[in-house]
Design a binder for these strands. Structure first.
Lengths: 161, 161
DNA sequence: GCGAATATCTTGCTCAGCGAGATAATAGGG
DNA sequence: CCCTATTATCTCGCTGAGCAAGATATTCGC
């Protein structure tokens, strides 16, 4: 966000800060969406995870959803309660394992998600169409590398207070 | 609804989802860092904003910090209280306008921030060194475009429940 | 100096998320 | 088939982040 860094340190650092600024902006966009619809940031993240799972044609249980979002079981239950009360999801018992609760998206949630992601996705695809294969490979490689670095928990982080 | 479902629709969509996955992973990384240091997500975001301001050689007041993070004045006061109690920042009265409270980072917070961002930044720079100017321009252009699209509040999103 | 405007702080409240434990369903050994 | 360990979810009680409203302190225009 805000003004850039010392470009003197190289174009690489400038891009690193640009990536961070972009993630911050996406987060703020998401927060605006949440507030506008009377939801909490966690609810939006849950919606994203559920739509992701749906794209991959996989069921998502309450517990697994909570794990993805970093909640404990009580928090996961409360989350699904909220989403259900808002009419965004419905609970269904798992078929083979009836202990599990499968969280299924209501049509309303899909529409809401599309209204949120659609324009952003369309604009992104439009941007990408302007690049050649060589450039696309670079974008893909960079994002993949950063994702793996973040997932690998690169942050050392000493003991807090 | 065209765009947002099928990965077979082209390499563009794959990259869009990759970007989203990357931001999610960065968010989880940040959450792990927060928990490990007894902080909350908002505290980490505040630290980022403060380090950003410092890089830009700009002072950040309590109220302005709260605005950046989307908090009201009470929330901003509580946030600075928390960070101060954790020894991460100190309050200082503004020089020309003594109503304001300038939030200044303690050395400890800088070190903590570096331990969090350092490895990720290093890895990112390393990745970027493998690309030529043509590719760097594509990465820069794509990220800039997405950031602007998100900032422009592309999400329509009607009234929620 | 007086009153309006502005920045922060205080008070009281709501609700997201946690820890601990209860309940329900499955899997395996006898 | 029954009994026990395991696993998935839910219930209860609590902590604390953030909000709304208002108090307090400082600045600016007149």
């Amino acid at each position: 966000m805000s003004t850039s860094s010392d470009p003197a340190q190289g174009p690489e650092l400038e891009i690193v800060h640009l990536l961070r600024a972009t993630t911050v902006e996406l987060g703020l966009h998401s927060a605006r969406f949440a507030q506008r619809n009377g939801m909490h940031p966690t609810d939006v993240r849950a919606l994203i995870a559920l739509m992701d799972a749906r794209r991959a044609r996989q069921e998502l249980s309450a517990g697994r959803l909570g794990a993805v979002l970093g909640l404990n079981s009580a928090g996961a239950t409360a989350l699904v309660d909220r989403l259900e009360r808002a009419g965004l999801v419905r609970r269904a018992r798992g078929r083979q394992d009836r202990r599990t609760v499968v969280v299924e998206l209501e049509e309303r949630a899909m529409a809401l998600g599309r209204s949120f992601f659609g324009p952003l996705i369309d604009r992104s695809v439009e941007l990408l169409r302007g690049y050649d294969a060589h450039q696309m490979a670079a974008i893909r490689g960079f994002l993949t590398g950063v994702r793996e670095a973040a997932a690998g928990d690169g942050g050392a982080a000493g003991r807090g207070a």
